[in-house]
Simulated assay, not measured.
Amino acid sequence: MGTTESQRGRTPRGRAASIGLSRAQIVAAAVAQIEAKGLAAFSLRELARSLGVSPAVIYWHVGGAKEDLFAAIAATITGGLAEAQDPSAIWTERLRQVFHAYRASVHCHPKVSPLLGAQMKSNGVASLDWIETVLVALAEGGFEGDALRDAFNALIGGLCGFVTMELAPGPASEDGAWEERVAQRMAEVDPKTHPLTHAALPQLANRIFVLRWQNGAQVSYDDGYAVLLDLLIDGLAARAANFPNTSPAEPKHG
């Protein structure tokens, strides 16, 4: 009676290894690798080795290119956002709920954030549920045609862009030299040439996007995100109120 690959202590590969391996397991392993090493260091070959399969098996499950895997990761992060909203709430409140849930979801995997805001390679139909959720709320507010498109881009660009920038990784530096240089440069700001910046440094240092050495995984940007969310949604509501042949939306009842 012959011995199997597992009995000989070998890791099964190819078609044999793909049995029982799911798309969700591949995505989870990819997210874990990105969280451990960063997006720039992501390696499909290393992912395949960690799962005991060939890269071809991963492509068979998620698509024919690395971009398909990235799209699947993005869709996983945004996949449950529709459930975050109260179906009985008006459209503006549902958008608030969805975008708060979006930020919370991305904060669970901060090193994946560039895929959701700064990488076109993660675009794809895998995120259709997320797109539909936002469009339904905007359409209920009276947006259509070009106005619907522009409102969608304002929300996604502003709010998703905020989260991507909030969680942007700093330069790889094991000794903290970069952080020390930034802090030192801020301590040397001249009150004569930049009086307002110098006066506000206690509130600004390491707390605004362009004067910091830690990202939003370490320092809270909750208040800034809330301000942007209110500005965008209140602004869209004011714009919607001026649409012809529309009246204030009533709450939906499920």
Rank of each mutant, 00 (worst) to 15 (best):
L95K: 04
L232G: 05
V182Y: 09
S22V: 08
N206P: 00
R15G: 09
A137S: 04
D86R: 06
R96H: 13
D190K: 03
V182K: 09
A84S: 12
L128K: 08
T76M: 14
A226D: 03
P244L: 15
R103W: 01
M186I: 00
V163N: 08
L196W: 02
E132Q: 14
T133L: 14
G141F: 01
A199Y: 01
W130C: 12
N245T: 13
T4F: 00
V27P: 06
D234C: 15
N206Y: 00
L231N: 06
Q97R: 05
A40N: 04
K192Y: 06
I156L: 10
A104H: 02
G80F: 15
S43Y: 08
D175H: 12
A187L: 03
A237N: 12
I34N: 02
T3S: 05
A40W: 06
E166T: 04
G124W: 10
S122K: 09
R212M: 07
G176N: 07
Q218N: 08
F162T: 10
L116T: 06
A139P: 01
A240C: 11
P248W: 14
S105R: 13
G161R: 02
A104M: 02
G79A: 13
D146M: 00
R94L: 02
V227S: 08
A101L: 01
I77M: 14
L155P: 03
F99G: 01
I26C: 14
L228Y: 05
S88I: 00
V27I: 15
E174W: 08
N123M: 15
I90T: 12
T133R: 07
N215G: 14
M120F: 07
R15L: 15
A72E: 14
G142C: 03
E166D: 08
A177G: 10
T76D: 15
N245V: 15
W178Q: 05
A24L: 11
G161A: 07
T92I: 07
H194N: 08
D146H: 01
